[in-house]
Design a protein around this nucleic acid. Structure first.
Lengths: 256, 256
DNA sequence: CGTCGGTTTGACTGCAATCAAGGAAAGTGG
DNA sequence: CCACTTTCCTTGATTGCAGTCAAACCGACG
């Protein structure tokens, strides 16, 4: 935690222009000439270990972040001492925007796995953005996408049936893996059942049962944190709430 | 409803500088000289009747909105045909930002009461913002505040007990009324029990029972849509989940 | 080998959804 | 102004789903 890690300096120093996440991340849509300007504000931090905090509740807004490797969760602890998970953040997804409104972070960001992040000091970012219209536009878009993920979360939490929330969660995660160029039908969950439960407003046992049921129905294959999607269409049906056993809802379509 | 309302034209034409919402709305923090620039892009629409839509799902991003009078809800209809309420929007609160991410509105905005709105064409707004740093900063802040409301919503939906969600909802609404300079302990709900339920992820009967219970406990006084807060502290306790009758939970009570 | 965190599964219970009925308020037309 | 309709709200009785409690299982790791 306290000593520099010289071996990684070379990797850390590579620029946005060379980053594999370029198309997904903030630079997308910013042309080559302007990219250099952006590069000057991006700081790369040395890797974080699983469980490390990137920022905490009440921290002043210093920067926004993108994981270049690894994943994060953002959490709040409510008055009763329960931890709620506000979001999961995969590589290439901007996070830390929660401090923009008030100037202070309203949640804590924790590395789910060993991770490394790009840090974009907010004041520099917004002053550069005001000079580069393409970056300003892209910044707004990325903020909007982050809000979209929040809306997806609300959508999840509004579902009545636990099985719907779980199916929708898996489906949404799959879509996000596809977006960042990873296999969308075979992946490793970076988070525990308990963390999923706290994200979905359920308890861990219910999440576990939900996974088991999708497994038994042949929709997905689950073994621990390894998930394989066997029948995407069935997963969508389950997510839309029409797929509950005892609720025949005569969908013609005898699912493969 | 279909004919113009000439009598109101004068009111409609007043500028941001004269608006009572000025301190709450986008112009806050924008100095006098720049305010004129902002004024040039603000369009005032004629009043909407209760039930009218301001924008619909899939509409392209044209503008963002602030109700100058009246309130709105934003809703989505899911695959099963159920309506979910994503948010309620009081006067002075910017909304319509949901289209920033994708360029298309992801929900529908409906007037809860007769209302009138200020419309800020987005392309003009963002191009002016790029010339006025103070406006750019304020725009980001307002977007951030909107995200904060979304997080509050997530927080609500994550609460296990229906009574907690309801108490927290009333408390949050009270705080928002205070923010816009209206009585925070005596107000008229602009939305129905059913709409509250669809916002909280409950059914309307449960919401009704929750209100009745808070009434019986002397925390609030409810008669239809009229709400008076009698014991704010008790409301906060109920909202934090420690106030459930059978759950004494000896809170030390020194948490200063 | 044993421990340990995380996961699965089972049995039971409680809370909120559902089903159902009645009441109150607001709008409509005579 | 009153009867009527319509909409919204409240309350009661019952049921089902997910939370709780408890135990067993599993893979990782020392």
């Amino acid at each position: 935690m306290s000593e520099p890690i010289p071996l990684n300096l070379v990797r850390l120093r590579r620029s946005c222009a060379e980053c594999s996440l370029q198309q997904l991340c903030l630079p997308a849509g910013v042309d080559g000439a302007d990219m250099g300007r952006l590069d000057t504000v991006v700081q790369r931090r040395r890797p974080l270990a699983r469980g490390d905090s990137l920022f905490r509740l009440g921290d002043p807004l210093r920067a926004v972040y993108v994981a270049s490797e690894g994943s994060f969760k953002t959490v709040v602890v409510n008055a009763s001492g329960e931890e709620h998970v506000l979001g999961f953040h995969l590589p290439g997804e901007l996070f830390g925007l929660d401090a923009i409104g008030s100037g202070q972070h309203r949640c804590e960001a924790v590395a789910l796995t060993d991770a490394s992040v790009c840090e974009l000091p907010f004041s520099q970012l917004s002053s550069i953005a005001s000079q580069l219209p393409s970056l300003q536009q892209q910044l707004l878009r990325v903020i909007g996408q982050s809000a979209d993920r929040d809306h997806d979360h609300v959508d999840l939490l509004s579902r009545r049936q636990a099985s719907e929330r779980i199916a929708l969660f898996v489906h949404g995660l799959s879509a996000r893996y596809r977006r960042i160029g990873r296999p969308a039908d075979d992946f490793q969950l970076p988070m525990s059942r308990d963390e999923i439960a706290r994200y979905l407003g359920l308890v861990l046992e219910t999440v576990s049962r939900g996974f088991s049921r999708l497994h038994d129905e042949g929709v997905i294959e689950v073994r621990g944190r390894r998930v394989r999607i066997l029948d995407e269409e069935a997963l969508e049906v389950a997510a839309s709430g029409c797929g509950d056993d005892q609720n025949p809802q005569p969908r013609r379509r005898d699912r493969a």
